[in-house]
Design a protein around this nucleic acid. Structure first.
Lengths: 218, 218
DNA sequence: TTAATAAGTAACTGATTAGTTACTTACCAA
DNA sequence: TTGGTAAGTAACTAATCAGTTACTTATTAA
């Protein structure tokens, strides 16, 4: 009707951007295709044209977000230094990744409540590529004698993920209870320092390496 | 039509039980009033009769579940022993409370994704009654010199909640990745031991109390 | 130039669902 | 015993929404 230039790539991008925001905010069930179409300034029909279905679009968004976290994991492989420094760096990078990717944090939670029905198709990529790298760093530290040898690495990975993720997953509640902006740079850095401090005390071998100290700010 | 004895109390209870299960499984938006009515073996009209609206019923369920966790917190006040023993006991009780109350864990997550819209009305009860008690135990340990004095108690409470809660919040994922039943008694006890071990190492003052040990199984 | 194809639109459809209406039936206090 | 009230039922309604239909318009390869 009215003149509008065609630009499939840009149209697709607009759909993705709008869908990511809305799926993260309301979940697969709560999101409305009409709402995504309106936010993307595109006719609803085009969503079906490019992505087949609401679920197809959702999968695209989920995949995109998991790819982002896989990239963070890949950066972790290239870290130099002692196991202790590497753990600190990995936590720092993961922490700020979560801080900057609210959509990722929320999408994972929606998935989790839906028994990770769609995430299951993507999870093996992380389990087979990213997780072993993190575990290798922890094993390295154990072999060096810097970390305790009685650590259960699988549980440790859950716990590190927990203390890092929970802050963002529940930030509305903490904001409400503490009457404070949990995303303020100073508050973020304070939380990160606590996480590093708590985690390192939790894993360091205090018997042998009694003289061992670690940089709080690194 | 068909003969059916009247029993308002039992009817209400049937509604509550069905609603708790379904709201926990699908959230406020995902749950269907017709589905709750069918599960409760009651006419849908009665739900509106007793609880006014879908939201009214949901609030009732939420309140009921928060009351349960507040009770766990009250038990924590009555604990005897050293600060270290108390922390261990509180973690154990909270852990098994979560293990036995899947609905609570899920309801909190749904709320969290909805910015705790309804939970906000209940949260102050926990913030003003339960949390101070936990904080008091931690402060006690710090004053005794058993726990490190540089701990940030607010962050610590988040972290303890995180390592305890995350296991249950993500149990589908871990079950899938580990190919293991995360709710098996042995697996549960293993996780609890890790949490206690990790947390206590995270908070114990290793410099002063070098001779200090703690019971792993208590 | 043109015909095949891809991009785009508006209006519709069928299924679902929270809440309501108009009704009947059981219970119990006076 | 009876009349008011609470418990209970079936069928309806208005709104919502994923996906479709039937169409027009732009782009491009031969």
């Amino acid at each position: 009707m009215s003149f509008r230039e065609r630009n499939p790539e840009e149209s697709k991008q607009r759909i993705i951007k709008a869908a990511e925001k809305i799926f993260a905010a309301k979940g697969l069930d709560g999101a409305r295709v009409d709402e995504i179409a309106a936010a993307a300034q595109i006719n609803k029909r085009m969503i079906y044209h490019y992505y087949g279905s609401k679920e197809g679009l959702y999968m695209e968004i989920l995949r995109k977000n998991y790819n982002k976290v896989i990239k963070v994991g890949q950066r972790a492989t290239k870290l130099k230094g002692s196991a202790l420094e590497k753990v600190t760096q990995v936590i720092r990078q993961y922490f700020y990744f979560l801080a900057e990717n609210e959509e990722f944090v929320r999408l994972i939670q929606w998935e989790s409540l839906h028994h990770s029905r769609y995430a299951r198709k993507i999870l093996p990529d992380i389990a087979q590529v990213t997780l072993p790298k993190l575990k290798a760093i922890l094993k390295e530290g154990i072999q060096e004698g810097v970390f305790r040898s009685d650590l259960d690495i699988r549980h440790l990975v859950i716990s590190i993920n927990a203390v890092t993720m929970m802050y963002f997953a529940r930030r509305d509640v903490y904001s409400f209870l503490w009457q404070q902006d949990m995303m303020h740079p100073k508050t973020l850095e304070e939380r990160l320092q606590h996480i590093i401090d708590f985690t390192l005390h939790g894993i360091l071998n205090h018997r042998q390496g009694e003289g061992t100290t670690y940089e709080k700010n690194s």
